Amino acid sequence: MPTFRSAWNWVFGKHLPKPPNPDKSAEAGWVPMWQAQMLTDMLISEGIPAVWNEDFNIHLGTYSREPMGRIFVTEDRKAEAEEIIEDVTGIAPRHRKI
């Protein structure tokens, strides 16, 4: 039976976070394009399903100064993929602001 507290949380958005869904994709990192293929190949060799795409931006000075690539993995492997990207590049992966 729902309580007043659970109803209060439901109304004001204090929901429990959903567990990662292995059927959905998530962005694991936004990296320079020259690193994207290399990192994707490393993730695949570690058993993490990954793809990358080119992120074209006509204003290269806004967020980056070079062409970038976005790496996508499944939601349940995102944390592991970010750790691998950080180990290889030496910095935490950035995420593109949309």
Rank of each mutant, 00 (worst) to 15 (best):
S45C: 07
I85E: 06
I91N: 03
E66S: 05
P32M: 02
S64K: 14
R77F: 05
R70S: 00
T62M: 01
I84S: 01
P17N: 05
A7D: 10
N21F: 05
K78C: 03
G69A: 05
K24R: 15
I91Y: 11
P20K: 05
P19Y: 12
P32E: 11
D23W: 09
A26M: 10
A26D: 04
P32H: 06
W34L: 03
K24N: 12
N9W: 06
W8Q: 15
W8H: 15
K18N: 13
F56R: 09
A36S: 13
Y63L: 08
S25F: 07
V11T: 13
E54W: 02
H15C: 07
P22W: 11
T3L: 06
E54A: 00
E86L: 03
P93R: 10
G69T: 01
M68H: 07
K78L: 15
F4H: 15
R77I: 06
T74N: 08
E83N: 04
A7I: 15
V73R: 03
W10A: 13
R5Q: 10
P32K: 02
V73Y: 00
I44P: 06
I84L: 11
D23L: 09
P49K: 09
Y63N: 12
R94I: 07
K24V: 15
S45L: 08
I44N: 13
G13W: 14
F72H: 12
L39S: 04
E46A: 02
I91C: 00
E82I: 04
P19F: 13
M38V: 13
I71Y: 00
